[in-house]
Computed example of a mutant assay.
Amino acid sequence: MDDKVLQLRNEYISYVRLEKNYSVHTVSEYEKDIDEFLEFLAAEGIPTIEDITYQEARLFASRLYDRGLSRATISRKISSVRSFFNYMNGRYNIDDTSFRLLHHPKKEERLPAFFYVEELEKLFVACQGSKPRDFRDLALLELLYATGIRVSELTSIKLGDIDNELGIVRVMGKGRKERYVPFGSYAQSAIELYMADSRLLLMKNVKHDQLFVNLRGGPLTERGVRHVLDAIVERAAIQSKIYPHMLRHTFATHLLSAGADMRTVQELLGHSDLSSTQIYTHTTKEHLRRTYMNTHPRA
């Protein structure tokens, strides 16, 4: 790619990382999608971004379909490039009509995966132990389930962000939106035990103010959280796979199943749009159906 295109690409990636405050994973996806689009331009002999027309945008989408990618993946890639053009339009008045007019493929309806209470209990039991790592893992698991926060929000928590006495944590969400999320007695107890001496033992001689610490003493990263959760599932010997967002899904599903109103759950999750929260109503209906089918004598 030429120097101008490379400059625009790097500028936009810095924008989503620093100004939009997207997670490391999300920024990586944007980078991959935009680089793929720029490779498409080079292969098609399109010299500059200003030369893109609706026909080229459709051709790009067509190539994605030809590769047999899922509709969700194609939709994400189109959205990434559309956002890139929208940024360039706002900053440099580059026409973004080509991708603004391009339709997203309809996504498959997939309900968010979540843990049942019995599965969660096995995870908590698997964290029981006397090593500093065990106390950290339990505090991490309890806080994720108690608050429904994103992993990027968890790894950014500093000591000054958490008030264990009041049971409130301050988190910085997407777009640098700050919110306060409450947590209950189980998380409070787990954090107190972790903070008593396990955190300092894990830190060794490293100094920083991040709440969660890796085994080398540095701040725990998003990838590190995934490793921790994978290890917990392995120790619990349950069949379910785990990924960090599953605990967020579980938090929302359990609240709505117990009668919490959707607006409250929306605020706790930090969703800007209620439609993002509404998907959990479908999950709770499925939860009710499965409970009924498993327990009713004449189901």
Rank of each mutant, 00 (worst) to 15 (best):
Q210E: 09
I238L: 14
T283L: 09
L193S: 06
R100D: 14
Q239H: 10
G68Y: 08
K285Y: 13
V213P: 03
T284K: 06
Y22Q: 13
R110K: 14
R150T: 02
R226P: 00
L202K: 07
S189N: 11
P244W: 13
P105W: 01
T97N: 07
I238Q: 13
K131Q: 15
D2Y: 10
N164Q: 12
S152N: 06
Y12F: 15
A57N: 12
A252N: 06
Y180W: 09
L154G: 04
A61I: 08
Y243L: 09
R290C: 08
E142G: 06
G148E: 07
L138S: 00
Q55G: 05
K4M: 12
R170H: 02
G218M: 01
K32M: 09
E109V: 05
R9F: 14
D33Y: 08
E31W: 04
T253D: 07
E109T: 10
R71P: 01
G160S: 11
Y65W: 04
E44L: 13
L200H: 02
K32H: 14
L274W: 07
H103R: 15
M246R: 09
T295I: 02
R71A: 10
R150I: 00
I232L: 13
L41G: 02
L144N: 04
S80N: 07
K77V: 14
A61R: 14
S75L: 06
M293I: 00
T277Y: 04
T295V: 05
S23V: 03
S152Q: 01
P47Y: 08
V5P: 04
S198G: 02
L211E: 01
L8R: 09
L123G: 03
P244G: 08
D35A: 03
V16M: 12
N21D: 13
Q128M: 04
L41D: 01
F183H: 02
L166W: 05
E19L: 09
Q55D: 12
Q266D: 04
Q239D: 14
S83R: 09
Y30G: 10
Y280K: 14
L166K: 15
D95V: 15
G217A: 02
S80I: 07
D273W: 01
S62M: 02
V213L: 04
L69T: 07
R248N: 11
D95Q: 10
A146S: 13
I168P: 00
I94P: 01
H282E: 09
E36A: 15
F115W: 07
L256I: 11
G217Q: 03
R263D: 10
L211R: 03
M262R: 11
L229V: 03
L274V: 15
I168D: 05
T277C: 08
D35P: 00
N294M: 12
G175K: 07
G68D: 04
E286Y: 12
L69S: 09
L59W: 05
S70Y: 06
Q278D: 06
E39I: 09
T48M: 01
H271W: 11
N10R: 14
L255R: 08
L166R: 15
M88E: 11
E222A: 10
L141M: 11
R298K: 14
K4F: 06
Y243W: 14
S130A: 06
Q128H: 08
D209A: 08
D51I: 05
Y87P: 01
K106M: 09
E56H: 15
T284C: 02
R235C: 12
N294L: 13
D209F: 08
S257F: 00
S130T: 14
